[in-house]
Amino acid sequence: MKTANNKAWFMVLPVLLLVAINAIIPLMTVVNYSVQDTFGNNEFYWVGTEWFQEILKSERFHNALGRTLLFSTLILAIEIPLGIVIALAMPKRGPGVSICLVLMALPLLIPWNVVGTIWQVFGRVDIGLLGHGLASIGIDYNYTQDTLDAWLTLIIMDVWHWTSLVVLLCYSGLVAIPEVYYQAARIDGASRWAVFRYIQLPKIKRVLLIAVLLRFMDSFMIYTEPFVVTGGGPGNSTTFLSIDLVQMALGQFDLGPAAAMSLIYFLIILLLCWVFYTVMTSYDVDSSSGRSGGRQ
């Protein structure tokens, strides 16, 4: 077929331009920085994979990565079950539905830095409702000095801010289950647990996957809130990868190592998301391709 129509290229050009400007060009700039060194004056020298090796061996990176992984793990471990429980407890019909939905959506509407500021003030020992309240009943709480307190504050803040997302996703999955399933389960005499395990969980599995992926990516990339609340402290105890990266790139202006680190960071997120996705969808693959007859 020699009737190639070159006009088609003009049609995809806008998209190509858009993607190039907001994704490919910045990414390639980072790749470019990551393999070069500079001593100012816009002079660059080829250093190959030196920065990557340095980053991968650096203890600072290991520590930040460890903290970020721990943070994400805790966030997922708390928000996913909590979200499911709240979604299960929400009314399915009646006037309560809209009230619950609005209440649930409220935290999601607040910008990240405002959330940070709210909790920063909220937790202050001198004037904050939480900090001062705890101090006045004799609990020693100070997120600016105590590592555990700082972590607790960040985790509670994130749970407050983002559990709603998990709730709303699960709720949408739950209300989509036809009433007859519950009826059938009642007639069978199935227990509450069996209803959850064999009807509700399988039916919300897909939205749950989205919730896990979103919450993982978001918590793994968290920057604004800890930056506003703790600034990475006390010490380095809440310096997550993103905060570390910004300190390196903008604080110390080490463009090469920072670029190498962003790429590694990016690849880790990509890899972990792939792992989550593969694990959570593996059941579907088993049941549809592993059978002899296949779909009819």
Binding site: D188, G189, I199, P202, Y283
Partner: peptide
């Protein structure tokens, strides 16, 4: 209560336990 009445019901929609095998579905009662 309904679970003690020994009733079976089949609906217009095809209601089965989605993750259980056909064997387990039939065996569930």
């Amino acid at each position: 209560p309904v679970q003690k009445r020994n009733v079976a019901m089949v609906y217009q929609q095809f209601i089965n336990y989605p993750t259980l095998t056909v064997f387990e579905n039939i065996a569930s009662p």
